[in-house]
Simulated assay, not measured.
Amino acid sequence: MPEYTYLAVDQAGKEIKGEIVAYSAEEVQKRLGEIGLIPIDVKRKTKKGFSLFGRKKVKRRDLLTFTIQFFTVADSGVPIVRGLEEIGAQMKNPYFKKVIFDIKQRIELGESLSQALSHYPKIFPNYYLGAVKTGEESGKLTEILRDLIVFLEKQEALSAELKQAMTYPLFVTFALGGVAIFYIFIILPKVLELVTHLNQKISGPTRFLMAFTNAAKHYWYLPLIGIVLLVLTVLIARKHEKGRYYLDLIKLKMPVLGNIVLKAILARFSANLALLLRSGVEIVGAFQMLSQTIGNSVIKEGILLAMENLKGGASITEAIAGLPFTPFVLSMIAIGEETGKLEEELSKIANYYEKDVERATKQAITLLEPMMLIIFGIGAAGVFIAVLTPIYNAVSKLQ
């Protein structure tokens, strides 16, 4: 949504300057008039160059901070408008700060909290809006905010575990790759030059190593081109629905990591659904919201299909039978439906898989380190054999 600067005067003729987020200059003028200000000049803010750090992005951590602060405001009985003003003043994210002040202005103009938040769907997901709306209507906003805090904290921890599981193998690979590059371009050429001066018959492993280092020296740019093309392919694929689907499918099919990704999805699905049902959202609407926040196109497609099954009268267990969920999840949900304690069973599933993701991540990292070292060790052993064999033969002849 665009940002505007404005100059206005109040009823006493005092000039007031400010910034506001709105769809158009006409909306800015209308909203200023509704709060008793006479607009004199309204200008759309222009971007001053590209800044990677100035992008309009609000992270989950920012949303969690906002929710904690807003819960404190609501729980202490401070009026919402005043509370939002204080929260906005403390917010470090400059874009989120402007959004909070805009939400405050919208509430002053008569919108409800959920209506004001709904203008920013990229910041406040559907499950968040649904929970807040239910809290407003039921008079239990404080309790809903407390549930949202717990939910967001768990999701933040889950994302951190998942990122660690995904990035650690890359870190180890790059570290060992850096060592390998140092040996290939700095050490090996000098050692192999010494080997060629020994006038010994060059064995197959040594010839292969010499050919490899020679190719690496002359065609070093080919792997870089391959990496760049791979990154570009992934970035382009992420912009298209079908591309995102196949990328998400690859994530689920990856050895070891795919299992961790699926467990994280199960935890997110269960926690989200429990929160929505506890907030009073009906089941079909809850599945609609889940499809937009689950974060995996393959699972999203399955959830949308399950939603259609629910509309046709299927139970939740029957509806989600086509999803790649474990028998444990299906049986727990079936028990919840039969006993009328679905929210409780979903919370148990979420807690179990949140802990399981942490365990699986630590286990994967523990297994990965020796595996990478073994692979690197085998490569190093091959290099030593190729280099030391001709040197050993030369020394043997001298004796």
Score class of each variant (00 low, 15 high):
L230Q: 07
G83F: 09
Q399P: 05
K397M: 12
Y23H: 12
R268M: 00
L176P: 11
F182T: 15
L224N: 08
R238G: 08
V9G: 08
T46D: 05
W220G: 08
D147Y: 01
G177N: 05
T134Y: 06
I227D: 03
M91S: 09
Q399C: 03
V73R: 01
V357G: 00
A286Y: 03
V395L: 10
P79V: 07
I265G: 02
F71D: 06
E27N: 05
Q29E: 12
K48C: 04
F70R: 00
A274I: 05
I316Q: 06
L304S: 13
G280H: 06
F53L: 12
I378M: 02
V81I: 14
A175K: 12
R146E: 06
I250Y: 12
E19P: 14
Y183I: 15
I349S: 04
G285S: 14
T361R: 02
I181R: 10
G130R: 01
G83Q: 07
E337Y: 01
A74Y: 03
A271E: 11
I16M: 14
L109D: 11
T366W: 01
Q69K: 00
E369M: 01
E344V: 14
N351R: 12
N296A: 09
M289P: 06
Y4W: 01
K92E: 15
D62I: 09
V256Y: 00
E369G: 01
E111L: 12
T72V: 13
E369W: 02
G295W: 04
E241M: 15
I333K: 00
E3G: 07
K92G: 14
D356I: 03
I299H: 04
L129F: 05
E344F: 13
L342S: 06
F50P: 11
K239D: 10
K140S: 15
K217E: 09
T326E: 15
T233D: 04
R268H: 08
T142A: 10
A394D: 04
I181W: 14
